[in-house]
Amino acid sequence: MLETFLFGVFPYVAFAIMIVGLIWRYRTNQFSYSSVSSQFLEKRQLFWGSVPWHYGIILVLLGHLVGVLFPEGVKAINGVPVRLYILEGTGLALSLSLLVGLVILMLRRGISANVRATTSFMDVVLLIVLLAQVVTGIITAIFYRWGSAWSVQTTIPYFWSLFTLSPKVAYMVALPLLTKLHAINFFLLLGLFPFSRLVHMLSVPLAYLWRPYQIVMWHRRQTQQ
């Protein structure tokens, strides 16, 4: 019963909250969208936290995405043991570096008085949820080898079944507890997304790569439109 709720209902609730929440926040309070960086207040520790964290998490998330989108491809890669070891090894190395980054960022929030003063309640909640996500992920990777292989028959079909609105909870029930937590925590993160600083992920300024350097705005022409 609990598992039906957690894997069959909760994902949809979290996803709905995320979509509605994001639209609501964007429409009512664009001002609140920001990276809310604290580099200005403290930069030495931030470097060792922020850089490994961000690059690590971007690559690991991309790895997850590739796994979900091309399970057959991953399977083909894993067909040769050496390639499997390289894939899993790289993933683990990235996860460990981003874990180090995250821990440094957490400690920094506590150590620097100025950074502490600008820390919101949601920042603390988010850091704890993220830490749980990273730790459960790393433990799964180390103790339940090899995730990139078995997920093709378990979590990925489950994930796709969510999209067809017929969640196959059975896939998840059989998995170890920590792996289940990793999945549930992910849905929790989706729910927290619009109400935390995570929204800055949507602001990645890719348009900067091709826009002209200067921006000039004509009030007259703008209002005539």
Partner: peptide
């Protein structure tokens, strides 16, 4: 250098 394109010069 503004990545967001948030800064602008008023033409008028």
């Amino acid at each position: 250098v503004c990545p967001s394109g948030a800064i602008y010069k008023r033409a008028e």
